[in-house]
Design a protein around this nucleic acid. Structure first.
Lengths: 142, 142
DNA sequence: GTTGTCTTGCAACCATGTTGCTTTTTTGTA
DNA sequence: TACAAAAAAGCAACATGGTTGCAAGACAAC
């Protein structure tokens, strides 16, 4: 399992034009082996003291820049990231997204399969992007 | 105009069971005289050095607790607040909200008039609350 | 292998937010 | 109006989240 993610992460890095380094592999493996979204702090915890805090920030930033992951709006003051699905990675716009935050386990899931419904705004507003944050209880917490 | 907001803010504070103090009045007047959502930093800037930073934090927190304002999820890492409309204040749940962030002027508007469309999630998810963050250009920036 | 480029680690810094404690202001009541 | 209890403000210190500059190390391509 771990080996699979290891190889997958190397492939993903190369495919996105990023050099393959220990830190990037390890961080990407964490994303691959966990479905929920992650904040910087989560990653730092999982990695232990293996990498510098700054390295993790810069790695996440490079992943966002290259379209490997995307950031999720939250109500608290920390940025969360989730893996982009293939459609995102292959250059599609991030013009809509549905995220689910479980109030019990506090995990965040990126529901790519769910289409954002269309919405009518008052006159004068033009829409670029729609983000939906749904909260409630996830299947494992019912 | 300023006097009107002044009086309105006193009434609002009393109605929500908050003691009327200089800081709370001033902060509430800022919210009343500005339609967009505000972050702590915005308020601090508008107030000058009149109040301690901590006082502003605690004031905002008490407003949230009493249902005078609500926080808005953002993609950067700062919490924004907007005034609750009457319906919120009078005890209704904050179970849905549509916010609009203008990419040009960076203002955030709380579009109370817009209903959040219904959404179908995969099996097993139960919904408590839906937040929508729409970004694009606001009427004044078209 | 060697060279140039990209990444890492370190130190220092800034912004945002919180906590504990003391002093001051409000509020309700006598 | 004065007074006591309760609440809020100010101050200091701390915690967390995130950024920048620079030197040293790792990677990639030839």
């Amino acid at each position: 399992m771990a080996t699979v993610h290891q190889e997958e992460s190397i492939a993903l890095l190369k495919a996105h034009g990023l050099s393959v380094t220990g830190g990037r592999k390890d961080i990407l493996v964490i994303f691959l082996s966990r479905k929920g979204a992650l904040a910087h702090a989560d990653i730092e915890k999982k990695l232990g003291a293996r990498y510098d805090r700054v390295t993790i920030y810069r790695t996440l930033q490079s992943f966002v820049d290259k379209g490997l992951i995307h950031s999720i709006p939250t109500n608290d003051n920390s940025i969360r990231y989730a893996l982009c699905k293939d459609e995102c990675a292959s250059g599609h716009h991030h013009d809509h997204h549905v995220h689910f935050v479980c109030k019990r386990c506090d995990n965040t899931y990126c529901l790519d399969s769910v289409a954002t419904p269309s919405i009518k705004l008052p006159k004068g507003y033009s829409i670029n992007q729609v983000e939906m944050v749904v909260s409630g209880q996830c299947p494992s917490c019912q």
